[in-house]
């Protein structure tokens, strides 16, 4: 771990002793797993802290961990340009309809990055009013980057057999999944 990583971990652990669940290091990258409720507060702290000065958010990216639960992981890649260091905040989201709070008020581009996550992975961000279909048409059903979203090889549905095929599809959204568990 670099000095910057140690400083970040120390500061976050001090300010939010209950929020940090795990600190991982893999291939020289520092990942801090935190609980979902405190993501916004931690982001605000690292951004406003004069020593850390994390003024740049590189990316927000969601990951579907199926078959593991909690299912969704959201990664915030955060950078301090002056310290030339970066780290990853990782949080797990159980219910995609109640995702973490938006970070659009901390970094302007945050809201824009969240729209992409919403469109393709279906995680909503509390307080982000601009969530919409970005890449896909407005009437698209489903979120393609989820693991239970099929990648082709589906039976073609016609009006006479729509219901029958719909019944045996390998996925049927969250309800079917919940039944299986």
């Amino acid at each position: 771990m670099t000095d910057f990583h140690q400083l970040v971990v120390k500061k976050i652990q001090k300010a939010f002793p209950d929020a940090v669940e795990e600190v991982q290091e893999f291939r020289g990258e520092c990942t801090i797993v935190v609980d979902m409720e405190s993501v916004h507060a931690i982001c605000k702290m690292v951004c406003e802290d004069e020593e850390l000065d994390c003024n740049f958010i590189v990316d927000i990216c969601a990951d579907d961990m199926l078959p593991d639960y909690p299912r969704f992981a959201v990664n915030y890649q955060i950078r301090s340009m002056d310290n030339n260091g970066e780290f990853r905040l990782r949080t797990f989201v159980d219910d995609p309809d109640e995702g973490p709070q938006t970070v659009g008020d901390i970094w302007n581009v945050g809201g824009w990055l969240e729209v992409e996550v919403y469109d393709l992975m279906g995680i909503t961000f509390q307080g982000n009013t601009g969530l919409r279909r970005l890449f896909l048409p407005e009437d698209w059903v489903g979120h393609p980057l989820r693991k239970d979203y099929p990648l082709g090889y589906e039976e073609v549905q016609f009006s006479f057999n729509w219901e029958a095929i719909q019944e045996k599809k390998p996925y049927a959204g969250r309800k079917r999944l919940a039944d299986n568990n």
């Binding site: 003024n55 740049f56 958010i57 590189v58 340009m81 970094w107 302007n108 581009v109 824009w112 990055l113």
Partner: peptide
């Protein structure tokens, strides 16, 4: 501005 550019990624 520089600040806006950084904040807008």
């Amino acid at each position: 501005s520089k600040e806006d550019a950084i904040s807008w990624g």
